[in-house]
């Protein structure tokens, strides 16, 4: 009985959301607001239950751990809570500065080690044995050429030419044009992937709707 009730709720919400295909409507809005409220309420609970309690409160009340050190994040957390009051909110800039500082370091580390070094190395690996047969080399050359032309498409600086404004050298423009082609193909391929992914989910939802209707009709 309870399962049927929850299935009915899921069914109604699915139809309410899909009704947006026709246009914005009250049913869609109700489903939307309820969904945003439930997900926000759930995340609030998860944050308290799985981060704030075990990582901040428990070490503070447990004398066996280094409670002294935890006084700093506690203080920073209290300062963050001042953001709830418009008059005291300026105090919250200190913990935010801490977060931004950590974030900046994580960004640089991630960009250098996660992308830059990995991708540059991968460009060379296409040429190594056992792929170093002709088809492997062609693949490597296309990958290299595509990556370089794409990268050069973005070149922002150019020379100030009288009467022309800021222009890049003609050969850079040509390379950039080829890079633009690679970019269009890449984004098209990703768009196809996105369409196929969303289509799979849509089929799943329509299947659920049909199955639910079947359970109602004996």
């Amino acid at each position: 009985m309870t399962d049927t009730l929850w299935s009915l709720i899921a069914f109604v919400l699915t139809l309410a959301i899909l009704s947006y295909a026709i246009g914005d409507n009250p049913l869609f809005r109700i489903a939307l607001y309820t969904f945003v409220g439930i997900s926000a309420g759930y995340l609030a609970v998860v944050l308290i239950d799985q981060v704030i309690f075990p990582r901040l409160i428990t070490p503070l009340v447990n004398p066996s751990t280094a409670s002294g050190v935890m006084a700093i994040p506690l203080l920073l957390s209290l300062l963050l809570l001042t953001r709830l009051s418009p008059r005291l909110s300026f105090l919250g800039s200190l913990p935010m500065a801490f977060l931004v500082g950590v974030g900046a370091a994580v960004i640089i580390n991630g960009a250098l080690f996660g992308t830059l070094f990995t991708q540059v190395r991968a460009a060379g690996l296409s040429f190594t044995f056992p792929q170093s047969v002709s088809s492997g080399w062609i693949t490597g050359m296309v990958l290299l050429f595509g990556a370089i032309t794409t990268l050069l498409y973005f070149q922002f600086t150019g020379r100030r030419e009288p009467g022309k404004g800021i222009v890049r050298p003609a050969w850079v423009e040509w390379i950039a044009r080829i890079g633009q082609g690679f970019i269009a193909i890449t984004l098209g391929a990703f768009f196809a992937g996105v369409i196929l992914a969303s289509l799979t989910v849509l089929i799943g939802r329509l299947d659920f709707v049909l199955q639910f209707i079947n359970t109602l009709v004996p």
Partner: peptide, 25 residues
């Protein structure tokens, strides 16, 4: 291979921009 090449170029560019954004902070 074509989208893989383009994706590599785009990702490398984004990595460069990210490094400088972090550095400005």
């Amino acid at each position: 291979i074509l989208p893989a090449a383009g994706a590599r170029g785009i990702l490398l560019g984004i990595a460069l921009g990210s490094v400088l954004t972090g550095l400005r902070v």
